[in-house]
Amino acid sequence: MKRLLIAAGGGGDAIATAMVHAALHGPDEPALVLTYAWERLVVDPVPGPRRPSDFTGTVTAGPTLRLVTPRSAPRPPAGSLLPRLSADLRPALGLLDPYAGASGLARQIEEAAAYCEAGHVDVVDVGGDILADGTEPTLRSPLGDALVLAACARTGIPTSVHVAGPGLDSEVPEAALLPLLGDPLHTLTHADTLSVQAVFDWHPSEAGALLVAAARGIRGVCGTRDAPHPVTLGDASPHVYRLTLARALEINPLARALAESASLADAERASERVCGFSEIARERARAAQLAQEAGESPGGGTAPSEPRPLPRPLPERFAEWERRTADSGIAYVTTRRIAEELALSLAQLTALRRHLSTASPARHTPPLWRLAAVEA
């Protein structure tokens, strides 16, 4: 027998789900985490979620359910971090395929419940956009979470919905969420992070990193790459809250609108009606823009016959960026923000991390980095 959990938002939510499971039930309790292979374009250049046919080496666990293992691999040009994640997380990982809408997801959840011999489902969401009402100006990715709620309702299997780290995904503000959540079920601690701590040495999840940082006692203003405003880690940030499925459905109009969806196209149309946008359409537009930018010739600039200026030393570039970032009121940053804003290759990022850890060990507060202004 295994516990059955669902990482509602895909991406880094699988990490947080494993951490919440370990905190509530112990790290050695057997579990299966169902998750989307729906990742940022920096990881997967193909817009939208991946399905089983996008992978090699998955394991059949039911007529429509597939498990992702360390031997699985995405088929190019698709990309996915799930195979590597499956090697670093203790729970097994199952792939959610939303291309048949809530009805198809419901079948996969039922198959997973049978595979696990589980009579209950625990849904976990980092940040709280699973409780979005669709009008939030900062809302960016409501569809996956809402589909999970709709699918769980279709199964009839008793389901609990957990929100970890309210507001940490920068989609629904903490102040809007707290009145909906009631008293916390659990407060994550440093000990609860031990089962996932190594993952953030390579995984770009920012909401998950902030949740781990909060559990380790870090408080202050944190800068991430994908949010219009920085996130403040406060007293509620390490909390985990539990709601009934009925209450979550009552709050989330998109989930209710998805109840009869039988395809991902149906789900997109519902999102456009309720929220005013489709996040997959936004991904398609962004992917097309990136492809166009990659294909454009630079034009202008330094003539080939002229000597190119020597690149500035990486520590010097970082110091200038750090001063500018700290001046905006940010005390901590994610590794991903450093890497993307400085346009670092993996080798450059590794060299910079080594330099910072050696020159100023207190700078690294895993999985975040403390800016120099905080040390003074």
Rank of each mutant, 00 (worst) to 15 (best):
R51S: 10
R51Q: 11
R51N: 07
P52V: 10
P52M: 10
P52W: 08
S53R: 08
D54Q: 04
D54I: 05
T56Y: 00
T56R: 00
G57C: 09
T60M: 15
T60Y: 09
A61L: 09
A61Y: 10
A61N: 06
P63S: 14
T64P: 02
L65D: 02
R66V: 09
T69K: 02
T69D: 01
P70C: 13
S72R: 01
S72T: 01
A73W: 03
A73M: 03
P74M: 14
P74R: 15
R75Y: 02
R75C: 04
R75P: 00
P76R: 03
P76Y: 03
P76E: 04
P77H: 05
G79V: 02
L81K: 01
L82E: 07
P83V: 01
P83K: 06
R84L: 15
R84C: 14
L85T: 03
D88F: 11
D88C: 05
D88W: 13
L89A: 05
L89N: 03
R90C: 04
R90P: 04
P91L: 13
P91S: 15
A92I: 01
A92H: 07
G94Y: 04
G94D: 03
G94M: 04
G94P: 02
L96G: 08
D97F: 11
D97L: 07
P98H: 06
P98E: 05
P98V: 02
Y99W: 10
Y99G: 07
Y99H: 12
G101E: 00
G101C: 00
G101K: 03
A102W: 09
S103K: 13
G104L: 14
G104M: 14
L105C: 03
A106W: 06
A106K: 00
R107I: 11
Q108G: 10
Q108E: 14
I109R: 14
E110A: 14
A112E: 06
A112P: 04
A112C: 04
A113E: 11
A113D: 13
A114H: 00
A114I: 00
Y115F: 12
C116F: 06
C116D: 04
E117W: 13
E117L: 12
E117G: 09
G119Q: 06
H120A: 03
H120K: 00
D122R: 15
D122A: 11
V123A: 05
V123M: 08
V123P: 02
V123L: 14
V124M: 13
D125E: 15
V126S: 14
G127K: 09
G127H: 10
D129Q: 08
I130M: 05
I130N: 10
L131W: 04
L131V: 08
L131N: 11
D133Y: 06
E136H: 13
P137V: 11
P137L: 14
P137W: 15
P137N: 13
P137R: 11
T138Q: 12
S141G: 07
P142L: 06
L143M: 13
G144S: 11
A146W: 00
A146N: 06
A146I: 02
L147S: 09
V148Q: 14
L149I: 06
L149K: 11
A151M: 05
R154G: 14
R154T: 11
T155M: 12
I157K: 00
I157V: 09
P158T: 07
P158Y: 01
